[in-house]
Design a protein around this nucleic acid. Structure first.
Lengths: 260, 260
DNA sequence: TAAATTTGTCTATTGATATAGACAACTATA
DNA sequence: TATAGTTGTCTATATCAATAGACAAATTTA
């Protein structure tokens, strides 16, 4: 909790405590405090299985009433991040953020090796639809050409860590939905169409508050933040093969941009 | 507003409107609606200078009272994003998000060319301090070796678009603060130390709610989201020269990951 | 066992958030 | 010049969020 690169040094002169909380902001104090605690856990400031400071101490740190801290804690207990035990204390259940690599050869499973004991992709649904403008542009297709859309969720140790939609040229990749259902892997599915290597051509990254769909898809609580990537994958000779939009829960995932 | 890749198609069956709003979430309805409007502007769903739908229409779309919509709008008027004119309507002032490129040769000014008419970096302060653990690791220095810290803000067309802290080995780069103050450019400052090319070695990306410091530094409203990058720059022969942590306002900036 | 520490529950009060309705003020248009 | 459409202001009411204090219940420590 004390290695945040000198926030308390040169720069804190004449400024409020960095841990302080915004009132009348439209975001309730308990939600802000819950976010701070999540942040502290994600960055390792509160170790896994360790006890949180007692409620009175947290209340003092954030400058709020004990009951307000209790609201924050009870929200996190509800989310399964903390466990409170009467008389003993409140304990951290959840782990640090996963570090999800993004680079020229971004692959789901290989990138998370060593960080989780188990990970897999679930195919939620597939459909054929006319390409929207941005999909058509990304794939270099005519405006309303048919594309196959695969909706997937990535899970690690039983918790959702990504939610993605991928679009493929329907003529070239007819049947990729079945391949995906059978193999559980985009890479393996593309291999069936003779593509044994592909590269990340472009990635655009943004962040926003989770909307209703994100909350349901990623098992988040209202107010959570999602990282959004929009990307195009190409073959080694430059043909675009996949357009994708992925959403990651910011409280559980960070993106590590690796050499391309 | 209708090109969001088929949210309304296959996937909307049995689900609430995607635009719907979460109640009792700890985030007030007006703040959620303000976020949606910002999002819609940033993605181009509401064109610049165009009129927003009238308040009663927005209230119906989001399923809230007209007064709640008015709270959201008045917050955005306060932020300078919208302008309301009695009897006429409410109009969009602000532009789409800047697309900030990140790649092997990430440079501030060159990357934003064409998107803004004016951009520059302001040196806010500099100091010498012992390296924190993560800075020492990033730069390959001993744990408490002296490092120079430069605090900077990037501005485009008068609006803050980034806030960064950069750390440099104090022995090797003594005087880089003066160089930075004179040139207003990291690249030019490093050139004075014989470094005419440098590369991005690693970037780790995350997102979180803005804290009190972010609000002040980036001129944001409470509840805003910041993208955070932690990066190491190296010379072409692999020596680490700069460790940095940058924060970007998610409502004004997206990150474009380019080929390295 | 007694005391100290910590979480859990209850009551009460205040201020912010959200809904509801009515009407004024201003603008554009038929 | 009416009329319709839009933003601005006011009153009233109900619910949520936050503070305050007291004490119960469970656990750990002296």
């Amino acid at each position: 909790m004390d290695d945040r690169d000198g926030r308390q040094g040169t720069f804190m002169i004449g400024r409020q405590e960095a841990d302080s909380i915004e009132r009348r902001s439209g975001v309730s104090l308990w939600r802000q405090i819950a976010d701070r605690i999540l942040q502290a856990i994600a960055t390792g400031d509160f170790a896994e299985n360790a006890a949180l400071p007692p409620e009175v101490a947290l209340a003092e740190r954030y400058g709020v009433n004990r009951h307000t801290v209790r609201s924050a804690i009870s929200a996190l207990v509800q989310e399964g991040v903390l466990r409170a035990e009467q008389g003993r204390g409140t304990f951290v259940l959840s782990r640090k953020r996963l570090s999800y690599p993004i680079g020229a050869r971004t692959r789901f499973s290989t990138g998370l090796q060593g960080q989780t004991s188990e990970r897999h992709i679930v195919l939620l649904s597939s459909s054929v639809e006319p390409a929207s403008q941005r999909v058509a542009e990304g794939l270099g297709l005519a405006r309303a050409a048919d594309v196959i859309r695969l909706e997937t969720r990535g899970e690690a140790d039983g918790r959702p860590v990504s939610r993605a939609a991928g679009w493929f040229d329907a003529r070239r990749f007819a049947g990729i939905d079945k391949a995906m259902a059978e193999t559980g892997s985009i890479t393996a599915s593309l291999a069936r169409f003779g593509i044994d290597d592909y590269l990340r051509q472009s990635t655009v990254l943004s962040a926003r508050h989770a909307d209703a769909a994100d909350l349901a898809d990623l098992d988040l609580q209202p107010g959570a933040i999602v990282l959004v990537t929009v990307a195009v994958n190409i073959t080694s000779d430059g043909q675009p093969i996949q357009f994708s939009e992925s959403r990651f829960p910011a409280e559980r995932v960070e993106l590590k941009l690796s050499a391309l």
